[in-house]
């Protein structure tokens, strides 16, 4: 072993993080050693605090330190729209985009029999109950444009079928800010297939 045992252990722990390989794990560990000891103490206490105090919101499934979470208890959110997402990571991306101001429901999984993954029936039952009682006018199923995203979409659609709420799915096609001239043929085909009708407003 070329480094001390604690450093080696820390490197192994870092390398279990998603997207972190051996080299990055080594860089992280050595970076920590170069910082004042306060930094390591703060990091470890923050991690412990996060583990102790973070739990899932009883309404939407978001990670929170208070129940209900800051989104569910925000009086300024649009309470007529519910966006169903696979996981908290997707929800955070949506929040950061600022594109959506309604409420969320986190499924906490996706449907992929090949990988042995499924959405817990209790979670789908909870979604049905929540969407039925919540006076929602629209339910957005925001799953990925992939086979697994489609399977998850249909599982959710099946669960909320009886609620009678208008249900939509995210669109896919040309990237915003891009140009048709630079779009690849696959993207152009997808955007042609998912084109939308333009409503002409009569302003006269």
């Amino acid at each position: 072993m070329s480094v001390s045992e604690p450093v080696e252990r820390l490197m192994k722990l870092f390398s279990r993080f998603p997207g972190v390989g051996d080299k990055t794990a080594r860089r992280f560990a050595l970076f920590l050693l170069q910082q004042p000891s306060d930094f390591s103490s703060e990091l470890s206490s923050t991690i412990s605090l996060m583990r102790d105090r973070t739990f899932c919101c009883s309404i939407c499934g978001n990670l929170t330190t208070e129940d209900p979470c800051s989104i569910c208890s925000d009086p300024f959110r649009d309470r007529k729209t519910l966006c169903v997402m696979e996981n908290v990571e997707d929800m955070l991306s949506m929040e950061q985009s600022g594109a959506y101001s309604g409420l969320y429901f986190i499924l906490g999984g996706r449907v992929s029999p090949m990988d042995g993954q499924d959405i817990e029936p209790e979670r789908l039952a909870r979604l049905k109950e929540y969407s039925g009682k919540g006076n929602f006018l629209e339910l957005i199923i925001a799953t990925n444009p992939s086979v697994e995203g489609d399977l998850t979409f249909f599982a959710v659609l099946d669960a909320v079928r009886d609620t009678g709420i208008k249900t939509t799915r995210l669109a896919f096609g040309l990237p915003l800010g891009g140009t048709i001239g630079y779009a690849d043929r696959v993207t152009l085909h997808a955007s042609i297939e998912s084109r939308v009708e333009v409503r002409v407003q009569d302003n006269s």
Binding site: P113, F154, D158
Partner: peptide, 22 residues
């Protein structure tokens, strides 16, 4: 991929409706 998902669901005795819709 969807076909492999359906065959996996078949082996696991799961509901096949979603895979058929895909």
């Amino acid at each position: 991929r969807a076909l492999r998902q359906r065959n996996a669901a078949l082996r696991q005795g799961k509901n096949l409706a979603a895979t058929a819709k895909v």
